[in-house]
C-alpha cells in the first residue's frame, strides 16, 4: 500500500506520464481512502462521530463526482482540437492528479485533527480546512503538470484543454462542495448528511452576500 502511494506521489511506473492503460482501480481506491481519511478529520470538529462519518462519505464523493462531471467536456474539447490521440495520456494525468489530491489530503488529516483538538473556533476550522484543501489541490497541479509536460512538448495546443479542465473543475467543485456541505459541522446544529435547502447555488449566495440582498 505504502509503496503504491509512493509511486503515485512520484509519478512512477503505472502512474508515470504516458498513454498506457489508466490504473483506474488503484486511483479510485486512493481517492476513496484518502478522501475518507480527510473527511473523518474534518468531521471530528465538535467530536461528533455521526458528522465525522458523513464527512468521510462526502469528501470522496466531492472529489469523484466533480471529476466525473468534468471528464465528458474534457474529452469533447480534446477531440475538437484534434488531440484525441493523446486523450488517454491526458486522462491519466487528470485522474492521477485527483488521486494525488486525495492522498495529500489524507497526509494533512493529522494537521486538521490537531487544530480541532487545540480548541480552534468554528470559523477557524472552516478557514484551516479551506486553506488545506487549496494546498492539496495545488499539489495535484504538480502531478498534472508532470503529465502534461511531454504532451505540451509535442503540441502546445494541449494548454487549452488543460486550462479548460482547471476552470471547469474549480467551477463545479465549489458548487458541489456547497451542495454537499456541511463538512465540519456547525456547533449547535444537528449532524446531517446534507443541509436543509442544500440544492441552492453557491455563486448566487456569494453574490447576495456581497451585494447585501
Amino acid at each position: 500500500m505504502n509503496a503504491t502511494l509512493e509511486r503515485l506521489l512520484r509519478s512512477e511506473r503505472e502512474f508515470a506520464a504516458g498513454a498506457g492503460a489508466v490504473p483506474v482501480g488503484a486511483l479510485a481506491l486512493a481517492l476513496v481512502l484518502g478522501g475518507a481519511t480527510h473527511g473523518l478529520a474534518l468531521g471530528s470538529f465538535g467530536r461528533n462521530a455521526e458528522q465525522a462519518l458523513y464527512s468521510a462519505l462526502k469528501l470522496p464523493l466531492l472529489l469523484g463526482l466533480s471529476t466525473a462531471m468534468c471528464v465528458p467536456s474534457f474529452y469533447a474539447l480534446n477531440a475538437v482540437l484534434g488531440l484525441h490521440r493523446d486523450f488517454t495520456a491526458a486522462l491519466r494525468g487528470v485522474l492521477c492528479a485527483q488521486a494525488v489530491v486525495a492522498v495529500v489530503l489524507a497526509s494533512l488529516a493529522p494537521v486538521v485533527v490537531f487544530f480541532h483538538a487545540s480548541g480552534v473556533s468554528y470559523r477557524g476550522a472552516i478557514l484551516i480546512g479551506g486553506a488545506l484543501f487549496c494546498g492539496a489541490s495545488l499539489a495535484g497541479q504538480w502531478t498534472l503538470a508532470r503529465h502534461y509536460r511531454p504532451l505540451l512538448a509535442v503540441n502546445p495546443r494541449h494548454a487549452a484543454p488543460r486550462a479548460a479542465w482547471l476552470a471547469l473543475y474549480w467551477f463545479v467543485t465549489i458548487q458541489l462542495a456547497w451542495v454537499l456541505r456541511p463538512f465540519v459541522g456547525a456547533p449547535g446544529m444537528r449532524p446531517s448528511f446534507l443541509r436543509e435547502h442544500a440544492w441552492s447555488n453557491a455563486y448566487v449566495a456569494l453574490a447576495n452576500a456581497l451585494l447585501g440582498s
Binding site: 512512477e12 511506473r13 504516458g18 498513454a19 511531454p150 504532451l151
Partner: peptide, 22 residues
Amino acid sequence: SSSAAPAKLAHDDDKRLHSREP
C-alpha cells in the same frame, strides 16, 4: 536516470516528448 519507466505515448517521437526535463 529515474526508476520511472513512462508508458509509451501515442506519438512516434517519444524521445522528443521526454526531452524537456522538469
